[in-house]
């Protein structure tokens, strides 16, 4: 009996020591590394919200136990180049470049928007234009694209013109890139362009946060649904980092801070996703000669 008690006491003590050792070992095993996690962001969402990115970075740093750096560039291409040059670990890019560089990227997560990992491309015209019913009504007009590497802001209208048998290079009198979906909305709203192609998710989100701007535009046509611009990792990213990042992103709806951030993104969450989601975009790429 006595022995049993003393044994039990010994065991408790040993367990305590062991626990301390494990805790210590864990601390040694996962120190905050000097090299931060580098995440590239593009204009697939309202990327000019510096305050939001700050909060998100803080959230990710807490979850990942690592320093996080967001990198912003004015074009998709620059982010893609940085990713392929391994200057970035992760990036939130458009489905179009993902399709193009699928071999060199790993799909990390796909945002869930309105219950599914899909979105549309909107064709918009100024609110004052009540006649235009399709892209054909914009012949010889000024058209605003968002980015030449954007699916919704470039590839979709290009495909539409191609599908309609139009010369997609000379259909518009003039076209230009604004390098961001929100700026396409601005260009159309101000009458600089007679029409524009915009990410439907961005337009919908803008309609919530800046309804005055979107009210000056009219959505003429919504495309079929495509895979939502995905979070990707460069090929060489460490597996554990990849898993951790994936867990953090997909776990965002599980805590208050994460939910608040998602709400500001106007998203439901991030899902596992699969590459088949982007087959639709791949079809467009194949359909357009030289696309």
């Amino acid at each position: 009996m006595r022995t049993a008690v003393s044994l039990a006491r010994h065991l408790v003590c040993s367990l305590g020591v062991l626990f301390l050792l494990i805790a210590d070992a864990a601390a040694v095993e996962h120190p905050t590394p000097q090299t931060p996690v580098r995440i590239g962001v593009t204009a697939v969402f309202l990327d000019h919200q510096t305050a939001f990115l700050d909060d998100w970075r803080e959230y990710l740093e807490t979850r990942l136990q690592r320093r996080v750096v967001f990198k912003q560039r004015s074009t998709y291409r620059e982010i893609m180049e940085m990713l392929l040059e391994e200057e970035l670990d992760f990036a939130w890019i458009c489905g179009y470049p993902f399709v193009l560089f699928r071999q060199r990227l790993r799909l990390l997560a796909v945002p869930i928007y309105q219950g599914e990992p899909l979105y549309q491309s909107y064709l918009i015209v100024p609110e004052t234009d009540t006649d235009t019913g399709s892209i054909l009504g914009l012949r010889d007009k000024v058209f605003a694209y968002s980015d030449p590497d954007s699916n919704s802001g470039y590839l979709v209208p290009q495909f539409q013109l191609h599908a309609l048998g139009e010369d997609r290079n000379n259909f518009f009198r003039r076209s230009f890139f604004t390098w961001a979906h929100q700026k396409v909305v601005e260009a159309v709203a101000r009458g600089l362009a007679n029409g524009g192609a915009v990410d439907g998710y961005v337009w919908d989100t803008l309609a919530k946060v800046n309804p005055e701007l979107t009210s000056r535009t009219r959505v003429v046509m919504k495309s079929k649904k495509f895979g939502f611009p995905p979070f990707v990792a460069r090929h060489g990213v460490d597996n554990s980092e990849f898993r951790k990042m994936k867990a953090v992103l997909t776990g965002m709806p599980n805590d208050t801070t994460g939910r608040a951030l998602l709400q500001r993104l106007n998203l439901d969450g991030f899902g596992q996703g699969n590459e088949q989601l982007f087959d639709g975009i791949a079809e467009l790429v194949e359909a357009i000669p030289g696309g």
Binding site: A144, R174, F176, F177, T178, W179, K183, A187, L192
Partner: peptide
């Protein structure tokens, strides 16, 4: 660079 938006 014929960048209309930038000019704008």
């Amino acid at each position: 660079h014929d960048d209309v938006w930038k000019a704008y």
